[in-house]
Design a protein around this nucleic acid. Structure first.
Lengths: 187, 187
DNA sequence: GTCTATAATTCGATAGAC
DNA sequence: GTCTATCGAATTATAGAC
């Protein structure tokens, strides 16, 4: 309400934005509070004051909702393309997923959140599509290996051929893979 | 030759084995020289004496040769299955690849080595199979996203459904994917 | 609200005794 | 060859002045 309040809100937001970028680029360990504060143009002590600890700051920086649509009006034959399209564009526009992926490799709580997201958000959507409940977990996991593998190679390891491809090229290549994992008979 | 020499060799090997395990489990940053020395049952100073620095120790712990066969007698229709079979069993039996993968996420030199391995070892093998040279890099990269994604989910993130699958189940699911990335017409 | 100063750890690396 | 002792740097986190 007052100017003080407004500025503190802006500072909070600046800290969180800087934290997201640092965590995305450097991972949990190498992203220091000092660096985050420097990026936000404030004192490191302010980060502690606003967020309590590095852990709590990370928890908020890595907080996000997949916002996975239910693909209700997508024909069965195009489910793979729709899923790939959603994930690729989601990844391109929101670095939070990269934050989480990078941290999950060395941070157990981040890894746990990664596991939860796929178990709690992806599986139910596929259930609604009428995929055999006894197979849906394995199918979602297989699709997860491909989508996370792309994210790893494109955004984290930055392998040149994967970075060079356009989003549309990637989608065209990956769609049949996901389609098969989700809908084709088990081998 | 003498007993002193033999024991120092054994100590060197013990350090390297402990380092590989720690790097595989904890990544580069969190794997401390102190912890590695404790695992090996020796003094931390010995690690420095034998390997000079943490960087050099890691370089040796992450050193490995893919030993990718040339798949000369594999029929074209079974190339995907052969490649997947090789990688899965390679991963199951040698944790060095996990060492490298885990470190590559936060360590630039490890990421560079990862990129080099796929560019310098995988691509030439596919070239010999007669894959269109103008497409072979992209095809190898796509296969890389799927194989690294599996390694990430199974060995690093340890997603329950992926861990639960047997190597043979995994191979059966993944083989058609790799087959398509390597040999089918581009979309 | 913001910053200075510093406490408390932890780490890689070194020096030197034995 | 092995270990003790320790340095110097970097980190998170806290206490308190302004």
């Amino acid at each position: 309400m007052t100017e003080r309040t407004r500025r503190s809100d802006a500072t909070r937001a600046a800290i969180l934005a800087a934290a997201r970028e640092r965590f995305a680029r450097d991972g949990y360990d190498r992203a220091t509070i000092r660096a985050i504060a420097a990026d936000a143009g404030i004192d490191p002590a302010m980060v502690m004051r606003y967020y309590g600890s590095k852990d709590k700051l990370f928890a908020l920086a890595a907080e996000f909702d997949l916002r996975l649509p239910d693909f209700a009006e997508v024909p069965d034959t195009e489910l793979g393309a729709a899923v790939v399209d959603f994930f690729i564009h989601r990844w391109e526009s929101d670095e939070t997923l990269v934050v989480l992926l990078r941290a999950a490799v060395t941070n157990e709580s981040a890894a746990d959140r990664m596991r939860t997201i796929f178990g709690a958000q992806v599986v139910p959507v596929l259930m609604k599509r009428g995929i055999d409940p006894s197979e849906v977990t394995a199918r979602a996991a297989l699709a997860g290996t491909q989508m996370l593998g792309v994210a790893l190679c494109r955004y984290v390891l930055q392998m040149p051929p994967v970075v060079a491809m356009t989003a549309e090229e990637l989608i065209a290549w990956l769609a049949p893979t996901i389609q098969r994992y989700l809908t084709h008979p088990a081998p």
